[in-house]
Design a protein around this nucleic acid. Structure first.
Lengths: 120, 120
DNA sequence: CGGTATCCCCCTCGATACTG
DNA sequence: CAGTATCGAGGGGGATACCG
């Protein structure tokens, strides 16, 4: 069943109960840096250092934490080459691309409308 | 220009700079309760008390705060009837419906895949 | 019913230092 | 280059009380 059908089916009380898997994944994706990292990886494979620059403002700690969560959820693939100096490439998995497919229209719309929305 | 085109246009350094309007709106929408409130209102007009039950787990304080932000961004319309007892209806504006249109496919996909994603 | 006001805890997050 | 470790401040957010 779709979330968008819930109320149509009479579930006026308690859609998406607390501590359900959907909320957990939603929290991962909509975490402070989650969306930005996913969007950044939606076009290119990026190295750690590139990600840090592209996702402007993210600290090393938060980038690492965000990547670990997205990796454990199977959205991001980590490819570490045991060279010196080390090189680590991050890319989206197929599941990550499926997610990004739904994320990008949202991001594009927000980017297009942000100025109007904040105008007062 | 679309966010999804940025890297295709060679913007490998610094997409979505910090403190830009897009990030502000993104933070409003992806705030802890923002998505859930928007999804809850995407089908029905709901009263304050209904929202509190439907968005399970939200406190009065956070519901009020979330609604004020979404209202000031023009996503949510607040209709207060000066009756006794008071009745306040919340609904999406046209802008809110435009946003929800991009949010629901994301939510549906997450709801469909959350179990697989968290399976380990 | 539909909120505000207040207190305060905890947990996220940034800054800094360090390492293979 | 690509991280981890640690610390400490700040504010997000819950609990409770109160109000029109």
């Amino acid at each position: 069943m779709k979330v968008s059908d819930l109320s149509a089916h009479g579930f006026t009380a308690g859609i998406l109960p607390s501590n359900c898997p959907t909320r957990t994944v939603l929290d991962h994706v909509t975490s402070k840096w989650g969306v930005l990292v996913l969007v950044a990886l939606s076009q290119d494979t990026l190295r750690w250092g590139e990600l840090r620059r592209v996702v402007e403002g993210v600290s090393e700690k938060m980038l690492a934490q965000t990547l670990r969560v997205l990796e454990s959820d199977g959205f991001v693939h980590r490819d570490a080459q045991p060279t010196i100096p080390p090189r680590v490439d991050y890319s989206l998995t197929q599941r990550g691309r499926d997610l990004a497919e739904r994320l990008l229209p949202l991001m594009d719309w927000i980017a297009d409308n942000a100025d109007d929305i904040l105008a007062r």
